[in-house]
Structures are given as C-alpha cells and as structure tokens.
C-alpha cells in the first residue's frame, strides 16, 4: 500500500475531465476534488453523466480528455484492475455478480484480487463484508439464484472485500423499502466511520442526505452545483435542471 497522504490532501482530484461517445458529449470539462473522509452525494436528472463519471474514475472507460489523480498519483491511463488494487472500487447500477460462483466466492475473489489479501486474511475479510451487508445467510448460494435486493447487497459486499479507500456507489438504494433503506444508511455510515471515502449516486434524495455531507448536482455532463446539501437542494439551477429549464 502506498503511504497515506496528509489528511487535508485530496484523495481524488479530477481536472478538465471530458468523455465523448462519438459526437455525444457525456462528460464536459469536469473539475472535482474530494478528501478521503468525505461522503459525497451525486444527484442529477437521467442522462446527466453520473454513471459515466464513475466509470471513467474507476477506469472502465478511458476519458477523452483530462486527468485523474488518486492519492497524489496520476491514474488517468492506469488499467481498471490496478486502480482497484490501489483502493478505488465502484458498485454497478445493474448488478454484475459472478453468477456461476457462490456469494462467498464472489467476495473472496475481490479480497484476493483487488484487496491483495492472502488466503486467511481474505477469508476473514470476506466473512466480515458479508456480515456487514447482511448476507451470511446466503453465503453458500450460487449468485445466479439471488433476487435483485441480494444482488445489490452483493455488489456492496464484493466492493468491501477489496478493502477500499474510496467507494463509489451507483444507485444501490433503488427499490428498497424504508426499513431496508434505513439498514443501508447504517451500513454506509459504518463504512465512513472506518475511514472509507464515499461517492454515492442516488435518486432517493432523502436517503442520500442521511449520509452525504456534501452534495453535487450534475446536468448535461457538467457539475452545476457543489456544496452543503441544503444549499445545493435550494439552488435555483438545480431546481431548474430537475423540473426543466422553463420552471419558475
């Protein structure tokens, strides 16, 4: 593991980031920085570029322009697997379990690969991650037998198996009941308490606001507001972006 930077140094710095798919501009000149102890919520209308933003940060897509620095090092051209080994991990909006493997084996693979753990440490970390996500009861089930809720939990448990520094969550709260959402909020708070930086895209804003101490609103590939959650939610441009440009 690289040496931890000073507490005030940004864990993640993004400068002039752009992503185009052909003529379609999905991310347009994004500047962003966060400290490792922050929990940041990202909101924005569909198609704002939120998921693409996460994909570019973790290395699933190369950016068209701009740089990404993680814990002081330039990771812009680094393969996704190596970024994960340095401590960046994301969950997928549409879960992508390793369907032919058991739930435990899913998390174990993450712990030995991205987490770099030896066998015994990986066992322990996998069991702990599964317990934290309430999945011990299904640990030996094949992942392709899980329902949607458990598949989403598995995304989170597998991400935790890598022992992340920065956790990027893509709509893991969608479709949850109030009680389930409450449990999820408790889990994410626990992760913060352990010192993991959080970036969380979520449409269910009241759930997001229980964890986020900073809120970002994206629209048309740009960050249109960034600050304290109350201020961002009251921001005129944010309200316009959600309700359509003509409102008010």
């Amino acid at each position: 593991m690289p040496e931890a930077p000073l507490p005030d140094a940004p864990v993640l710095e993004v400068a002039g980031l752009a992503k185009r798919f052909g003529a379609l501009v999905v991310l347009d000149d994004i500047d962003f920085a966060m400290r490792g102890d922050e929990a940041i919520g990202i909101v924005g209308p569909n198609g704002a570029g939120k998921t693409t933003f996460l994909s570019v940060i973790v290395g699933a897509h190369p950016p068209s322009r701009g740089t990404i620095r993680f814990r002081g090092a330039d990771v812009t051209r680094m393969p996704a697997a190596d970024r994960c080994r340095r401590g960046i991990i994301r969950t997928h909006q549409v879960p992508r379990p390793f369907s032919g493997m058991t739930v435990f084996e899913n998390v174990f693979t993450a712990a030995t690969s991205g987490g770099g753990a030896g066998r015994d440490e990986a066992y322990q970390r996998s069991i702990e991650s599964l317990a934290l996500c309430g999945m011990m009861g299904v640990a030996n089930r094949r992942a392709d037998t899980l329902g949607l809720l458990d598949r989403k939990r598995l995304e989170l448990a597998r991400a935790l198996g890598t022992n992340p520094v920065l956790l990027l969550l893509d709509e893991i709260g969608g479709g949850l009941t109030d009680a389930e959402a409450g449990a999820l909020v408790e889990t994410i708070r626990e992760l913060r308490h352990r010192g993991i930086g959080i970036v969380w895209i979520e449409h269910i804003v009241h759930v997001l606001l229980q964890v986020a101490d900073r809120l970002i609103c994206m629209d048309a590939g740009r960050i249109i507001a960034d600050g304290r959650p109350d201020d961002v939610m009251a921001d005129r441009t944010v309200i316009d972006a959600y309700l359509g440009g003509g409102a008010g």
Partner: peptide
C-alpha cells in the same frame, strides 16, 4: 477463483482488481 470471475463477467472481474 479469478478465472471463473472472468468467465462470469469480464468487466466486473477487472473492476474488483482481477488482471484479466
């Protein structure tokens, strides 16, 4: 385990640190 993860989802395997 990593080999089987790649079989099931190459992108997800890379995202959890598997050198595909």
């Amino acid at each position: 385990a990593a080999i089987q993860a790649i079989r099931d989802s190459e992108e997800a395997a890379a995202s959890v640190g598997v050198r595909v």
